[in-house]
Computed example of a mutant assay.
Amino acid sequence: MIRVLIVDDEALVRSGLRMILEAAGDMAVIGEARDGDEAVTAVARLRPQVVLMDVRMPGTDGLTAAARVLAGPDAPKLIMLTTFDLDEYVHEALRLGAVGFLLKDTPPRELATAVRTVAAGQAMLSPTVTKRLITSFVDKTPSRAESARNRLASLTAREEDVIKALARGLSNAEIGRELQLSEATVKAHVSRLLAKLGLANRVQAAILVHEAALT
């Protein structure tokens, strides 16, 4: 069972998310929190695998809580929840190490899939969301583009194919089908290229590719 913590200041939202996730059959909501302070305490006490965290809450907000949670030992996978599909706070959370974000009106099946995806170690960004997020927030200055291209020059041809597909928001399985590779091989390529580039996650890799204008 995937152990999930839900963090949102609205009881109705927490209740709805709990019903959706527990109906999936392979995940258990082990706790809820109403704000960032409660979230940090709950993570330390309950040790969830995945945290669904609202980005905007009274008191200690989701971004502040995300920084504290992700800085701790054995940090859980963190998905930010937002009412808006493009939010500078979510972008900052991704830079901190969150592995994805979801709109609060995400269909139940997609929500469950997202939790499974991040629990398995992959980032959760749909191609549409990836494109809009990257387009709005990447540094497009010539010096930054040159720096990004220089970093990517260390990749092999196959690693470059993988990271370009990754930057389009494709999952490991989708990349494998496109490049005729097994999912395990794609996962190994992603791990190696992240280590080679000194990146924390797939989102940072996507940003780098877009800054290099390779898409």
Rank of each mutant, 00 (worst) to 15 (best):
D54M: 12
D54N: 12
R14S: 11
L96K: 03
D85K: 02
P108R: 04
L46K: 14
G25N: 13
F84C: 06
R132K: 12
V4L: 08
A23Q: 14
G59Q: 06
V13Y: 00
H91D: 10
I6G: 04
K77G: 06
D9Q: 10
T60I: 14
T60M: 15
R109H: 13
D87G: 01
Y89H: 15
A28I: 02
K131P: 00
E32M: 14
L78E: 07
V40A: 07
V115H: 07
L94E: 08
L125V: 04
I30G: 01
V118D: 09
E38H: 08
V43I: 11
L94A: 04
R56G: 02
R95N: 13
A11D: 13
L94S: 08
L133K: 03
R34E: 15
A123Y: 01
D35H: 15
L125A: 04
F84Q: 15
L70Y: 10
T113C: 01
I30P: 01
T83Q: 11
P73N: 11
R132V: 10
T128S: 14
A67V: 06
R45P: 00
S126P: 01
A23K: 15
E22H: 11
D105T: 12
G100T: 05
K104G: 00
R116N: 08
M27D: 07
L78T: 09
F84R: 14
A112N: 09
D9W: 13
V55E: 02
P142T: 13
I2L: 09
P127L: 05
V138D: 00
A75F: 12
A123Q: 00
P48W: 07
T106N: 03
V50R: 05
R56V: 14
A123K: 00
A66V: 04
K104P: 00
G121D: 03
M80S: 02
M19N: 03
V7A: 12
S136Y: 11
A33R: 05
A119K: 00
D87K: 00
V129Y: 03
G72W: 10
E92S: 11
D8E: 08
P58M: 13
P108T: 07
K104D: 00
L94C: 05
R45E: 11
S126H: 10
L46N: 08
I6D: 00
F101Y: 15
S126Y: 06
L94I: 10
R132H: 08
R56F: 10
I20R: 13
M19H: 03
P76I: 12
K131D: 10
F101I: 03
